[in-house]
Nucleic acid binder design. Structure first.
Lengths: 183, 183
DNA sequence: GTATATGCAAACTATTTGCTGCCAC
DNA sequence: GTGGCAGCAAATAGTTTGCATATAC
């Protein structure tokens, strides 16, 4: 999640493969996002926000901490099962919803119909390859300041940002079997 | 949809109330978005893209053209009924999906669990009030050039952009009945 | 001890699909 | 004429909820 490199002159930081941002939580339950949110790990955040750490939540937190993709609820469930058999899908849904409300997680919709999640411990955006579904994370510091300024102008305090670019790789084509063929 | 004004020094153009962007279409079916997309009206776009103009589609197109909010599928259906009783929800779903694939519409997820739609005839972004669900449209020309440059750097042609700011109005509070109280 | 969490199964909501007949081009 | 489009109803996918029990603090 943290392998960065420069690309072009846009202060661009590439971060990881496939990602999600703030989703379908009752909007006003969301916790405002501090521009300088400290980098607690997920479990510590849970404790700070008064959540009970059950074995199920340990498993879910571990899955989320270890994930460098952006798992769907179903994927979180499947992975959590490896750490704890005593867990059911409803619990994963409930837990994830609570995590979102507490500002621990963000959900994202990448156009697949399924919500996907990632820890809310750093702010970044997504470039989605429309042909393969691959997601590249990036961040642009200057850009975020601009957006905060815009919100301020309009009388709003920023709670969260969501920026996605959907694009086609130059030179991409599908082969006869419909599989992705890079250039 | 076109009442613009300046706000601050951010080259900001405020456009309308409540809005959605590119949604759950099989990603690779989306048509690349030209930076200089001409302002055809929706029906003309349909014809250009080889779609048959049935009475049902006339009704749907009319609803979409007239809407200055960002209706859900259900809302499009209800409004279209006023123009044509011979229409069913499945048709609205099918039509909207085709419109998305043809690059005529974009879908947006504002965190309510329901997709919402708007014509894709101008590019703009959304500031969502997390307390009330209100949506303000805005656009930032400089910003879009920046994002296109980023995508180019990474070897991608931009198909569509999605930018949402979720924010809280300064001074907003709920009254005892849970209704919104402006400052 | 008690408020919170959990499992299970049923309920819900939004969306998609199979099929048969129709109509825009 | 014919391929795309429509209606209808049934199916599906993802997510939520009621309720009785268990457990973290």
């Amino acid at each position: 999640m943290d392998a960065r490199r420069k690309a072009g002159d846009a202060m661009l930081a590439i971060m990881s493969a496939p990602a999600v941002i703030n989703g379908d939580v009752p909007l006003s339950d969301r916790v405002p996002l501090s521009p300088d949110l400290p980098r607690h790990d997920v479990e510590q955040l849970c404790l700070e926000r008064g959540l009970r750490m059950t074995p199920q939540r340990h498993a879910i937190v571990r899955v989320l901490s270890e994930a460098d993709d952006h798992p769907s609820v179903e994927q979180v469930y499947q992975r959590a099962l490896a750490y704890n058999q005593q867990i059911c899908l409803a619990t994963v849904y409930r837990t994830i919803r609570i995590f979102e409300q507490k500002g621990i997680l963000q959900s994202r919709d990448f156009g697949t119909g399924r919500a996907r999640y990632e820890p809310l411990d750093h702010e970044h955006h997504h470039l989605v390859d429309v042909d393969t579904g691959d997601v590249v994370e990036f961040s642009i510091a200057a850009h975020e300041h601009l957006l905060r300024a815009i919100a301020e102008d309009l009388g709003f305090q920023v709670v969260s940002l969501r920026l996605e670019i959907f694009g086609k790789r130059y030179g991409f084509q599908r082969n006869s079997a419909g599989e992705a063929d890079g250039l």
